[in-house]
Design a protein around this nucleic acid. Structure first.
Length: 298
DNA sequence: GTATGTTTAAAATGAT
DNA sequence: ATCATTTTAAACATAC
């Protein structure tokens, strides 16, 4: 009754919360910011599940955007007409899902409301930045690419990727049995379709600029391979403990599961060998430098 | 009028 | 069982 057969993976609810989905979308954009409509689009393109009941989940998504401090609004430039503003990730939100579950954060990211500077919403700071940029732009600059939000993310040395980069998120559970997050040489990574619920319109993830491989796969394993990185997105509805974890998918997963058993657990191999690269560059993640006072509260 | 945003409230769900 | 987070619903404001 709960699940009358006929359930293609694709229509199952992805094991990601709206927050993580939104973060993914934002991170996937070159500018690290997207207008609401684009966020919708991103999600709908990759997760068939969200092609229905749009009214419902989009309202939830919007709620999340304004309710969570980890999302900030960036005003649209006058020369960039359109509806609504852009949404970006708060520079200090770091990896909210370091606990490995993209369904639930360990703690909520909250901006402290005490310091006028930070409290005044980073958005203000941002707006100024935007204005400056705008000024510079109007001043004559041809059309520099919109920089990442916040002077902070600016100039992210090509290669660096936020933990929310969909590449990381989806790739995380994609550990090779051996333990390495990625093989030395990124193969034709069927990143897309790594998940049943991810649709994958052609080569979706490669919209960003240069630092990606042919498949939208970051050229290096960044994902803050910190010490804690089980990073196995919990299966949406923990299969009744029936499936003792798939025998660790050997290969990069069949890019398509035409008729494989409907074992939910999208989680591939577990190999939570958190001992990835010891020298993870991403530690700079929550760069304290961002004089923005924020904290994971609660 | 529709799309965006904000907010409040409560139910659902996961973690301890 | 309790607490925290997420999801849903809905009312309402503002912008395009």
């Amino acid at each position: 009754m709960p699940r009358p057969g006929r359930n293609t993976y694709s229509d199952q609810k992805p094991p990601y919360s709206y927050i993580s989905l939104t973060a993914m979308a934002i991170q996937s954009s070159p500018e690290k910011m997207l207008p609401l409509s684009e966020i919708y689009k991103f999600i709908m393109e990759r997760f068939p599940y969200y092609r229905e009941n749009t009214q419902r989940w989009q309202n939830s998504l919007r709620h999340n955007l304004s309710f969570n401090d980890c999302f900030i609004k960036i005003p649209r430039r006058p020369d960039q007409p359109g509806k609504g503003s852009f949404w970006a990730l708060h520079p200090s939100c770091g990896d909210m899902f370091e606990n490995g579950s993209f369904l639930r954060r360990r703690k909520r990211f909250k901006v402290l409301k005490a310091d006028p500077l930070a409290a005044s919403k980073p958005a203000d700071f941002l707006q100024q930045q935007a204005k400056l940029r705008l000024g510079a732009l109007a001043a004559g600059g041809p059309h520099l690419p919109q920089m990442a939000p916040y002077g902070l993310g600016v100039a992210p040395p090509s290669g660096f990727k936020h933990p929310f980069a969909i590449e990381n998120i989806i790739a995380r559970e994609y550990k090779v049995p051996g333990g390495l997050a990625f093989p030395a040489v990124p193969p034709a990574y069927p990143l897309h379709n790594a998940w049943p619920h991810v649709y994958d319109p052609a080569a979706p993830l490669s919209m960003a600029g240069g630092e990606y491989g042919p498949y939208g796969v970051p050229l290096k394993p960044l994902c803050h391979g910190g010490p804690t990185l089980p990073a196995i997105p919990v299966p949406i509805k923990p299969a009744p403990a029936a499936v003792p974890a798939l025998p660790a998918l050997p290969a990069p997963l069949p890019s398509l599961l035409p008729s494989s058993p409907p074992s939910l657990s999208p989680t591939s191999s577990q190999t939570a060998t958190s001992q990835s690269s010891p020298a993870t560059p991403s530690e700079t993640l929550t760069s304290p430098a961002s004089a923005l006072h924020s904290v994971a509260v609660h």
